[in-house]
Design a protein around this nucleic acid. Sequence first.
DNA 1: GCCGTACCGTACCGTACGTTACGGCGGGTT
DNA 2: AACCCGCCGTAACGTACGGTACGGTACGGC
Lengths: 219, 219
Amino acid sequence: MHPTVDVSESGLTERQKDVLDAALALLVEAGDTLTMTSVARRASCSKESLYKWFGDRDGLLTATVQWQALKVRGVPVDPEAFNLASLTAGLEGFAADWLRVLSGNISVALNRVAVGHAGSDKHDLGAIVLENGPFAMARRLKPLLQLGRETGLLEFQETDEAFRTFFGLVVRDVQIRLLLGDRLGLNETAIDRDARRATQQFLALYGINTNQARNGHQS
Amino acid sequence: MHPTVDVSESGLTERQKDVLDAALALLVEAGDTLTMTSVARRASCSKESLYKWFGDRDGLLTATVQWQALKVRGVPVDPEAFNLASLTAGLEGFAADWLRVLSGNISVALNRVAVGHAGSDKHDLGAIVLENGPFAMARRLKPLLQLGRETGLLEFQETDEAFRTFFGLVVRDVQIRLLLGDRLGLNETAIDRDARRATQQFLALYGINTNQARNGHQS
DNA sequence: GCCGTACCGTACCGTACGTTACGGCGGGTT
DNA sequence: AACCCGCCGTAACGTACGGTACGGTACGGC
């Protein structure tokens, strides 16, 4: 067995990870039009190896998407001292993170190819992106929401409904517009501003004893 | 000149419209994998005519998307007696319409192919869907919002911000999940319920003298 | 030194599909 | 009737690309 086999929980060798990184870069550059030949050339590997490692083109794409998903495992936030300030900070940080990811080249490219494949017979990529996108976001956020409810800061019946409302307030039309090719330059200050606005609006809808105005204007 | 040339504001003959309807149906069935041969067969026309009429494959797709966009010109709503009830009804109707369109097969298929093409060099389809999707929705809704502000029912500074918030409250994660292949059966009752919820939440955020609870729980 | 393994580079094959060309036909015009 | 025009159906062409095969190389094990 090779000494370089660092399979740490992904079943991939370093060489294969490099190949997937190359595929990821090509996916961002060329979208779904990337060819097996182009991946092999970019990664300086042979097509034979690509087929041996990943089976076929779809296997390569699937492995690439999963590899990227593995790299963005989120950072959980659950402090012990929990109050309105930490809840607000948690929501804002979450919203900002999500907007940053959404507006990144990699996310846009991956969602594009996954959406395309969801239309075909092969729903694999769509399911994977769904699992590591919206669903993963829900799994990460729901504990925070429930903690807010348990501590009397939030009031809602269905956690899922509350999450989806927060999702809507954060994402709005940003993702679909980016996917459709709209430029929509989202710089860091705009992201922070949007994160704060979405959080304030969410608290206005689901918060209990927030002493702010009823409508969601920030500052 | 032919007697059957009914070019009414689209520059298309009836025969060509039939062809585009066939292409639309194939787009829904097969997604972006539709071939020129399949369109010709479905529409019982020759490939030579397809190329003569639409130039090339992208021209056919573009014409198909525009043809569908032309068919869904919305119905504006601006009654003379304007009060909170009519504003609420207008927003609810709008939200329900939009959710119905979004969750339809045609919309999902068209957005899929447009998203795919936005990743390629050809941004045409993405721009068209953008123009006839989110942007058209904004153009249709903004007069209603501004009327609400003028009559003192709503309060906001930027119409665009208010619209985008309403968009987020209505659409939430529905569109991206559908595009990624999530089933998410949205029947008529669920659409009506979501439309009411989104409207109540929007009024809770931007309404002025609504005497309901601060949070957006419906009923 | 010899072998097996893993891999690179490249040439090759088969096919699908966009695009073009051609023969035939019906219907309107002169 | 003779002709033209638009269209259908189909055959043919060119190419791009997924997938495979093969020769060559480096390297670790015996």
